[in-house]
């Protein structure tokens, strides 16, 4: 083979090699493109899954948040209820303390004057009355007469108050044993002796021994409160018992002194 033939052969081989290489490059290009497409598809697929997962998570958290919000409101309402209840119990404690002290004081002595003084203190300090009168019933004459009072300056005549059983509001309260309360704003107090703000019978069971009559409340108090009615009930029973016991005690003391003097006289004479 001549040199020329060898060169042609080589060129032919070279051309074939070139074509083959070019074909390989094209194929490689196609594969790269396909690979890139597959990678993009794969990435896109992965993102949508993540989004779905995150969406589900957001939904779950939103539900949780809503539930927490509702629970928070419930707890807030419960707290408000507890706070209100606490205030109520606080008030109730206060009222019970007042009732306890009133009851304790009423039965702390058998001295008639002291008992009346205590009833006055309760009406002034616990009820908050500025003008009032305590009347006792004389069973012989059926007359109710004031034995202690406060506020003559704001309610003239309150110290000399008297009425007959069954007459007017006071007499009716004493006769029926039913308390009388004015059912309106009591600010300013009553203007007439026969129209009190409250008249409470002092009762031992059904037996009325007297009345507590209120005409004016203290300046800072514009109406009766719930505990006032409780105090009135307590006064109606306990003050009556205390007054009655102390009266009996005073009478028995006097009688005892008389008998003792009589006995002393007899002893001395003999």
């Amino acid at each position: 083979m001549s040199e020329e033939q060898k060169a042609e052969k080589f060129l032919e081989l070279f051309s074939r090699g070139k074509e083959f290489t070019e074909e390989l490059l094209r194929e490689n290009q196609k594969l790269r493109f396909r690979l890139a497409s597959l990678e993009t598809e794969q990435a896109a697929g992965a993102t949508s899954e993540e989004v779905m997962r995150l969406r589900a998570e957001i939904q779950q958290l939103t539900d949780e948040n809503r539930r927490m919000g509702m629970r928070f409101k419930e707890v807030e309402e419960e707290n408000k209820d507890f706070a209100n209840r606490y205030i109520e119990i606080e008030e109730q404690n206060n009222n019970l303390a007042n009732l306890y002290v009133a009851s304790y004081q009423l039965h702390s002595t058998l001295d008639f004057k002291e008992v009346i003084q205590i009833v006055q203190e309760i009406v002034i300090n616990l009820v908050g009355a500025e003008a009032f009168s305590i009347l006792l019933l004389d069973e012989k004459t059926n007359e109710l007469k004031s034995i202690a009072s406060e506020g003559e300056d704001v309610m003239p005549g309150v110290a000399q108050l008297s009425t007959r059983l069954g007459e007017g509001i006071l007499g009716t309260v004493a006769k029926t044993g039913e308390s009388y309360y004015i059912n309106q704003d009591v600010e300013g107090g009553s203007l007439a002796l026969d129209k009190p703000l409250a008249a409470v019978p002092l009762k031992i069971k059904e037996h009325v021994i007297g009345l507590i009559v209120i005409y004016k409340l203290l300046q800072q108090k514009d109406s009766f409160s719930a505990v006032d009615y409780e105090l009135f009930s307590l006064l109606a029973a306990h003050a009556a018992t205390a007054i009655f016991s102390s009266k009996l005690y005073s009478q028995s003391e006097r009688k005892l002194n008389t008998i003792q003097s009589f006995l002393d006289l007899l002893t001395t004479s003999s």
Partner: peptide, 12 residues
């Protein structure tokens, strides 16, 4: 001066 008030305050 009032024993009732003293007791009530002391109670509180």
């Amino acid at each position: 001066d009032s024993p009732t008030m003293r007791q009530l305050i002391s109670f509180s």
